[in-house]
Simulated scan of single mutants.
Amino acid sequence: MQNIISARNLTLAYEHEEVIIKNANVDIKTNDFVFITGKSGSGKSTLLKSFYAEISPRAGELNVCLTSLNNIGKSDLNKLRQRIGIIFQNYRLINEWSVEKNVMLPLIIKGVSYSVCKKQAAKLLKHVNMLHKAHKYPLELSGGEQQRVAMARALAHNPNLLLCDEPTGNLDEYSSDVIWSLLMSAREYLGTSIVVVTHHIPLNLRIPYRHFHIEEGSINEIV
């Protein structure tokens, strides 16, 4: 099966700062469901940021969706991000936009027609059980509802890869269970590869998954 993420001797660090990830070798395959764990400050979010090119490799090689992220140009970066969906812990919804328009955002950026944007938004909001709140605004929603909208937005452009940064970190148990169920269905029915940064892997997950742990800058797979 093809790798959707491949890292070879990957070293990551912010400008003028100490190395966070060093000499990492990671292969994540198409349709994998992957958890990345580690202590606070271990580099989990930094690694995730490298996967969507918010931080560039200091050394080594990184390929995501068959695209090299070493010195990637703006045009290739835009194409890459059209193949990736991102779910942030703090949702990052646009408060001045309706729920419907927030979900439409990736398609608007892609230049898709308004009618198609609207149809796709309705389909995804129905999938996350938020269609009845399509014309509400983010600040009118609970945290769990905002995260479900964020998930619908992340899936709007049918990404090959879904990156999730602590997607249930601020949610209660019920809302967390809803998010995990939606992530599992995205993998099962859409064939999306899922990578989740988290402090805790849910105990009741009913699918096979892979687990990478970061400690002192090293990434090791737990088998």
Rank of each mutant, 00 (worst) to 15 (best):
N204H: 09
I36C: 02
N160K: 08
E96R: 07
D165E: 11
D177M: 14
A186F: 02
I222P: 05
N129I: 06
H213Q: 13
Y189W: 12
S218V: 06
H135M: 09
N102G: 10
I87W: 03
S50F: 04
S142M: 11
N71L: 13
K123W: 06
N31L: 11
Y91K: 01
I28R: 02
D172E: 13
V197W: 01
L62R: 05
N102P: 04
P202V: 02
Y189K: 10
L77E: 06
R187S: 03
D172P: 02
P106I: 08
G191F: 07
Q89V: 08
I28G: 03
L171S: 05
P208H: 06
V178N: 01
V112M: 01
S6G: 08
Q2S: 15
R83K: 15
H211T: 11
K74C: 04
C164T: 05
I109R: 11
S181P: 03
L62D: 12
E166T: 12
V64D: 04
D76E: 15
V195E: 00
T11E: 13
G169V: 02
I28L: 14
N25Q: 10
N31D: 14
M130L: 13
V64F: 11
Q147F: 08
S175D: 11
S42K: 00
L12A: 05
N220S: 15
V99G: 01
I86N: 00
L141I: 02
G217P: 04
S42F: 10
L125C: 05
L139S: 15
P106K: 02
A13T: 15
E54Y: 15
N71H: 14
N90A: 10
Q89M: 12
G217M: 12
H157Q: 14
C164M: 10
A150H: 06
I219G: 06
Q82D: 03
S181I: 05
V19T: 12
N63G: 10
H132Q: 10
H199L: 11
S142G: 04
S68H: 00
N102R: 05
S75C: 14
E215A: 07
F35M: 07
L12E: 05
K123H: 14
Q89R: 08
L203G: 06
G191M: 12
Q2I: 14
F33S: 03
K133F: 08
V128M: 01
Q147A: 01
P57Q: 12
M104F: 04
F33N: 02
E216R: 15
T46C: 11
S56D: 13
D165N: 14
V128T: 06
N95E: 07
L163F: 10
P106T: 11
E173R: 12
V196W: 01
V99P: 02
N70K: 09
V195M: 06
Y14M: 05
S181H: 10
C65T: 06
W97D: 00
L10C: 09
S176D: 04
Q146W: 02
L141G: 03
E166R: 04
H157Y: 01
N158H: 09
G38W: 03
F51T: 01
S142I: 13
E54F: 10
S142N: 03
N70M: 13
M151F: 00
E173V: 04
V223M: 08
